[in-house]
Amino acid sequence: MSDLPGIYNYLIVVFLMMAGFYVVISQGNLVKKLVGLGLFQTSVFILYISMGNVIGGAAPIVAEGVTVYSSPLPHVLILTAIVVGVATTAVGLSLAVRIHEAYGTVEEDDITAQDRADDETVGTSSTKDAAANATSTEDAR
């Protein structure tokens, strides 16, 4: 076997990471951004799992006749990181849902355009708006 299997994982990691990062930057759609973010995080999971591998090592389960084991610690660490990644995606998606409720769109350009339109029309009457909001929260209670 050549060195290729050794570097192969890291090449995949770099590719996935850059692909994810590019999607986050280039896409205007918030959901697509989250997909890119997920890809970006996943690449790091593979990085950790790859570094735990010991050449010729078996799975870290005690068995007769096996002396070389892969390191289980990175796997455990990355389990935590996967949970964090899932939580991040969940929070991100729920924010996207709320943004869709509030703006009617999840496209970045439309959101900024609406915000800019708000700035122009609302202007000084923001006091009234905020006051109205305040009373409506009180009513709700």
Binding site: V24, L30, K33, L37, F40, Q41, T88, V91, G92, L95, A96, R98, I99, A102, Y103, I111, D115
Partner: peptide, 12 residues
């Protein structure tokens, strides 16, 4: 909401 989303992307 949008501020939180932007922070989420950059923070992550």
């Amino acid at each position: 909401l949008y501020a939180a989303f932007q922070y989420l992307v950059m923070g992550t």
